[in-house]
Nucleic acid binder design. Structure first.
Lengths: 108, 108
DNA sequence: TGTTATATATTGGACAACCGATATATTTAA
DNA sequence: TTAAATATATCGGTTGTCCAATATATAACA
């Protein structure tokens, strides 16, 4: 919990430290995915594929924060947002847009 | 040096670890500022003011990387981008837009 | 069956981003 | 001149992001 002020452990987002978690939350909101799908999507965007040591701890933290849920099926685990995850993502997107206003070349 | 692949020390940007440096670079490109002005601009965007322990080490690292230059005048130091800083910012902005494509509600 | 490939997971080490506290220099006010 | 305010700077500690290496479980193949 805690996104308003600087205190509290972890940041699901928007502290500058929570950007990977934020991006993962955003990607999963568009389509539930398992870890490797997520890694490939991140590779498309960033240019190189995050290692397992990056992606799985991030997913674990999001799950422990109650923002995503798992659905296991054979060797894959599909992740999707919880209600709380949706709520946090909405908040984080507004925050993100305020912080990086002007960086995207579109309007303003 | 080094922005393409994962190696090398520090990231001026876009690794997820370099987001503050990236934002600082962007803000200074719009208007040269001293540290406190920068802190106030960040406060406007993020909602709370970064502490000196956040902002000054970041400026120091950018300076040591040759991306910004200082101009001292009395008790204030005005920071502005070097040629290399401009170049890196252009690269980083493209990278940023690719990574966060779709997050801004405008056109993606 | 055993081999190989895929998905998930952890560990150790490095660096970036953060705060609160503290310290120093300069400017302004008393 | 002394005191207070402002700007810059550093220190210690915590968390998040990152990789390479390693480990385990399941699936697909030989």
């Amino acid at each position: 919990m805690m996104h308003g002020k600087g205190h509290g452990p972890h940041a699901h987002c928007c502290d500058m430290r929570g950007m990977l978690s934020f991006l993962i939350l955003f990607l999963l909101s568009k389509k539930p995915m398992h870890g490797q799908e997520l890694a490939k999507e991140l590779e498309k965007r960033k240019g190189d594929k995050p290692s397992p040591g990056t992606i799985y701890p991030a997913l674990k933290a999001l799950k422990e924060a109650g923002l995503i849920r798992e659905k296991k099926s054979g060797k894959t685990i599909t992740y999707s947002l919880t209600e709380e995850g949706e709520r946090v993502l909405r908040f984080s997107k507004r925050q993100f847009c305020r912080i990086f206003m002007g960086v995207f070349p579109n309007r303003e």
